[in-house]
């Protein structure tokens, strides 16, 4: 008798909770895929397209749908590690087919050589190049993601990718300068 009472009561509770959960699933439904947002947060937003997708968000969507996490050279190992943590998979080495990790660079237009063709302006994914037709163009250094996309369209090859110089603001204390001696 007690067994039946327990079974019935537990069964009723299961139904009640099931109903609550079912309601909550409908009532508090999240519209967009939060995973895509999270992946997009991790990606470096270079918008370079080296992964084979037109921008970081499409790649984030692809990862969410099961694509490899090691196709982002600008992000490098750090991004792969973060993605691996997020996706719960093993980190892989960077896929060399998509390029290799490099120091952060920004585009620089040699302005006296610029002919003002606006091709680089059209290529820039983040609108970091200003200028007008037949007028010299220039790169807004702060906005440049170093994606390289403006280099190829330039008909006079006047765009250089210059590595970012370190400033006192971006300088990082070096542990190596501390005499650390490992004690065996």
């Amino acid at each position: 008798m007690t067994i039946f009472a327990a079974l019935i009561s537990i069964g009723i509770m299961a139904l009640v909770f099931g109903a609550i959960l079912g309601y909550a699933a409908i009532r508090f439904k999240v519209e967009s895929d939060p995973l895509v947002e999270q992946i997009d947060e991790i990606l470096p937003q270079t918008q370079c397209g080296q992964c084979g997708y037109p921008g970081c968000r499409p790649y984030a969507e692809a990862i969410a749908n099961g694509d490899d996490i090691n196709k982002c050279p600008p992000g490098g190992e750090a991004t792969i590690k973060n993605l691996a943590d997020l996706m719960g998979v093993e980190p892989k080495p960077l896929d060399e087919a998509h390029g290799s990790e490099d120091v952060k660079k920004v585009a620089f237009i040699r302005e006296d050589e610029c002919i003002g063709c606006t091709k680089c302006i059209q290529a820039c994914p983040v609108d970091a190049i200003i200028g007008a037709a037949k007028h010299m163009h220039t790169v807004i250094e702060d906005e440049c993601t170093g994606c390289d996309l403006c280099v190829d369209p330039c008909p006079v090859d006047c765009i250089d990718m210059i590595p970012l110089t370190q400033t006192t603001a971006s300088w990082r204390w070096q542990l190596e300068s501390i005499p650390v001696k490992q004690v065996s």
Binding site: P44, Q45, T46, G55, C56, P125, V126, D127, T145, S170
Partner: peptide, 16 residues
């Protein structure tokens, strides 16, 4: 700083 830059880049990319 990088995150800020990335956010800015994303914003600009989407605006574009």
């Amino acid at each position: 700083h990088e995150k800020d830059q990335a956010d800015k880049a994303r914003e600009r990319f989407e605006a574009r």
